[in-house]
Simulated scan of single mutants.
Amino acid sequence: MSPSPRRWRRRLAVAALLSALAGVLLVNAAARPPRAYPDSPQFHDGAFHNAVTPKGPQGAGDVLKLWWKFFFGKRPTTRPDTQLPVQPLTRADLEAAPDHHLWRLGHSTVLMKLDGGFWITDPVFSERASPVQFAGPKRFHAPAIALDELPPLRGVILSHDHYDHLDRASIQALATRAQVFLTPLGVGDTLVRWGVAPERVIQLDWWQSTQVDGLHFTATPAQHFSGRTPFRKNPTLWASWVVQTPALKLFFSGDTGYFEGFKAIGQRLGPFDVTLMENGAYDPLWSGVHMLPEQSVQAHQDLRGGWMLPIHNSTFDLAFHDWQAPMETVLSLAEQRGVSLSTPRMGEPVNLLAMRPFERWWKPLVRTHERDAAAVGNTLKPSAGESAR
């Protein structure tokens, strides 16, 4: 008797996982020993640390269960079954756009035109957020503009070194096309190893600042972790960022759990006109390093934010919630708390000086998912994150 299609899919998933791990091992074998940062209060015992140890899976048993569920226990609704609405962009569109506009390109990749220069956050243009491109989380949609179509960039802003935020192929393509790379401590060393000229790299610790063309950038605290292999724990720092122009002040969260640091940032550097807030790939099991939607809204309020623009969603399947749940949940919470929320489609222009809400573009896409979920019935148990909602 031949194996069922489901068993074949499982076997292929296991083979893909093993292949991906083999790729990680090869990358790790070729990497250099980690550097020490003795002047950083966040660095001690050979690694970077959060101020408070965040909540996460406990022990090897939890980790194994998590990986098993990730590969074999997901519902089909964690991915869209139709094309997401993406507004294509051209270089001419971007160059003709007025100053102080923003475009979501996918996940946490945001392009901003500020005082005549283009800046991009966590550029990931590869097909997969993975150490290898034959396995790992695959994009739901193509970027709104191809990487080689981007105009010359004044700078790149990086939050940390995880694969869904730091993409080697994208960085190497931008190595000579971006004039400056702003990174937390250690991430810049990785860029230099990849071929970025050292004079283009500015590495900052938490609360350190730099100015570029009259724009003020501050690396601010976050509660997360780092590492691109299983063998090095927190070799580089993670950060959120404050970007201030003469006309407005922005906050970019990067990846983070909810923590008291948001209030400190709001008191020291707020209020903010717009916050680009992580909202997606969450679960109660790892809420210490990725905020739940209600925490994302609370963090925005702690920061004394004006408009909130959710990011870190609608591009990769990195958790157990339905793909549209981050947007639907945060919208409901924002309405309850009186928070101004902006939810543009990928590629849709956002005027940072005249923010507005956008249509619920994901609504027409979930009907087929709802039918699928009804057909599945009770054969799959909901995740802890879904039970909490």
Rank of each mutant, 00 (worst) to 15 (best):
D164T: 10
T176N: 14
F140L: 04
A135G: 06
R193H: 13
L191R: 05
V187C: 15
S170I: 01
Q172E: 14
L158K: 03
T176F: 12
H162K: 07
F140S: 00
L174D: 07
L166S: 08
V156Q: 12
D164G: 12
A135I: 04
G188P: 07
P184V: 00
A135D: 03
L158C: 12
L166G: 06
T176R: 14
I171R: 07
L182V: 07
F181I: 05
H162F: 13
T183V: 14
G188L: 06
G186P: 01
Q133P: 13
A178G: 11
A142S: 12
P137L: 02
A197Y: 10
F181K: 04
F134R: 02
Q179A: 15
V132H: 10
V187R: 01
A142I: 00
D167T: 04
A169D: 13
L158G: 06
Y163G: 01
L185R: 10
A129H: 01
A173E: 09
A169C: 08
D164S: 15
W194M: 14
L158T: 11
L185E: 07
L147Q: 12
T176E: 15
H141M: 11
F140D: 01
A173S: 13
S159R: 03
V132Q: 05
Q172M: 13
D148V: 05
R139T: 02
G186M: 00
I171M: 15
P152V: 02
L185C: 01
V192C: 13
